[in-house]
């Protein structure tokens, strides 16, 4: 394997992983507080379409990312009001959020179908970003570096700060946290909003980094992979990072297999396209097989909290 090919694979892999990494990090924080939001896919789509529209009209990708984060956080608040305020079922509400996000992005995105967008490329000097070896370090979109910074930030917040301790406590035992005087619902609102914003940024990776053209269903089910990734990463940010890049690798194999020759053509291309999703299922099965050793799942995940008790 030539070094160019290897670097090419790494760059593609990191790019493919980044949207999932953002969305999964946000979902990890929400789940650590005890909220299971299955609306990640919907929130990513809303983020993607809002980012596309804002970037297309203003030409400023940073503004696009910010709008995407705000829009998805706003959409996640619909979920929060229903599940936290009105104690609706989290699974059903999350699924409804995905359906809503899919529909909203399709409707809102119609005006942009087929319109081109400039990729949000590396901000480093060309000399760094084009040199074959340095490209693997400096050749990425700013979103990639932002995602890595967020991994560190989320890890530090959860493990080292008092706020993170309270958030974990709320997800571990809502009744105990309440009896100690912590606002369970308040913490969960904040965690869901963060999850929404991160899904929005994850969504904005698609038009800015991967497919600079609006098509319906742009995120192609990556939100579901992000959800699986949280379980795969055992609710730990660092493991999540490893998991995201592993999934990125599987998706990259798909791309190279389609483009390459030889054995890749013996196997139908649909198989390669299905590979990331097959990997998701496989990972979930493997994890549930060794469930007993995996005690890091928040104990109150998905359970509604009624403060009167």
């Amino acid at each position: 394997m030539s070094p160019e090919l290897l670097i090419g694979i790494i760059i593609t892999l990191v790019g493919a992983s980044t949207p999932i990494l953002f969305a999964a990090l946000g979902e990890l924080v929400a789940e650590k507080s005890g909220v299971l939001n299955l609306g990640v896919e919907g929130m990513m789509l809303v983020g993607a379409v809002i980012c596309f529209a804002v970037t297309y009209n203003t030409g400023n990708p940073w503004l696009g990312i910010l709008s995407a984060a705000l829009a998805s956080a706003a959409v996640s608040m619909i979920f929060a009001v229903l599940t936290l305020g009105l104690s609706a079922n989290q699974v059903a509400t999350g699924l409804a959020l995905t359906i809503f996000g899919t529909g909203f992005s399709a409707l809102f995105g119609r005006a942009y179908t087929g319109k081109p967008l400039a990729l949000f490329k590396s901000v480093f000097p060309d000399a760094l970003a084009t040199h074959p070896l340095l490209r693997a370090v400096f050749g990425y979109s700013p979103l990639v570096y932002l995602s890595l910074a967020m991994v560190a930030l989320v890890w530090w917040f959860l493990a080292k700060t008092r706020g993170g301790l309270i958030l974990r406590a709320v997800g571990e035992s809502d009744i105990s946290a309440h009896s100690m005087g912590y606002s369970v619902i308040g913490v969960r609102y904040a965690a869901v909003a963060f999850g929404g914003a991160m899904a929005g940024i994850g969504g904005s990776c698609f038009p800015l980094m991967l497919t600079p053209q609006w098509v319906e269903g742009l995120t192609a089910g990556r939100g579901w992979i992000a959800l699986a990734l949280v379980v795969f990463g055992a609710w730990r940010p660092i493991r999540l990072l490893g998991g995201a890049y592993l999934f990125g690798l599987v998706m990259t194999i798909e791309l190279y297999a389609k483009a390459g020759g030889g054995i890749a053509h013996v196997v139908p291309s649909q198989f390669w396209a299905a590979l990331p999703y097959l990997a998701t299922i496989l990972v979930l099965v493997l994890i549930s097989l060794r469930q007993s050793s995996n005690t890091s799942a928040p104990a109150c995940l998905g359970k509604p909290f009624l403060p009167t008790n």
């Binding site: 008092r162 301790l165 406590a169």
Partner: peptide
């Protein structure tokens, strides 16, 4: 001291006590 302990099972003794403190 509660009848049903208000403890967080997956956390350490130290973390549990820290959660009961109001000051940082």
């Amino acid at each position: 001291v509660f009848q049903h302990f208000s403890l967080f099972e997956a956390m350490t003794v130290l973390e549990n006590i820290a959660l009961g403190m109001d000051a940082k």
